[in-house]
Amino acid sequence: MKIGVLALQGDFAEHIAILRSLGVETKEIRTAEQLNEIDGLIIPGGESTTIGKLANDFGLIQPLKDFGKKKPIWGTCAGAILLSKDAHNDQPLLSLMDIHITRNAFGRQVESFEIDLDIPSLKKIDPSNKPYHAIFIRAPLIESVQSDAHPIAKLPDGRIVAAQQRNLLATSFHPELTPDDRFHRYFLSLGQPT
């Protein structure tokens, strides 16, 4: 299995480092043709307006939409915004997941935070189900999920910070910034036949 990481802008190198530590073959993705070589894609953290504009300018929007209808995609932070169908801003989106997003939902950078979350879905990866340490940076919030999209992580106050819809995954936080690789392993499990 080969996993691509969209490398238009953002912290794609951090995702690649974790995938490599798990023994996964990786590829930086900058063009539509490169999507043909991979079995799953991660859209990293970064600035969603920049990544969306570059994806649009280099003709990647439709190929990414087509890819997501067949194969797993995981978006972290900016990537989650791109997967959504509405982010209350005039910017290019992939509209692959039936989720609505509020950008910078917690405020500016000084409100960025770290917190431990309870994520039951990760039990499949590690039965101990220890708390998941999540880093939120100018983070978006998943304000609602529709259709067969469902929340998989919430803040203690109940607000949704991760959602899944079939083999599509969106997280408001950044698993690529912590040494805990459970979320990457969870994403890899989406690509396996059940």
Binding site: L8, A78, E114
Partner: peptide, 22 residues
């Protein structure tokens, strides 16, 4: 761990989100 705001990790992390950018 309870919520911790404006940690050094979040400060460094924002710069990581700017990588590959102008």
């Amino acid at each position: 761990m309870d919520k911790q705001v404006a940690t050094y990790e979040t400060k460094k992390g924002l710069a990581q989100m700017l990588k590959g950018g102008v």
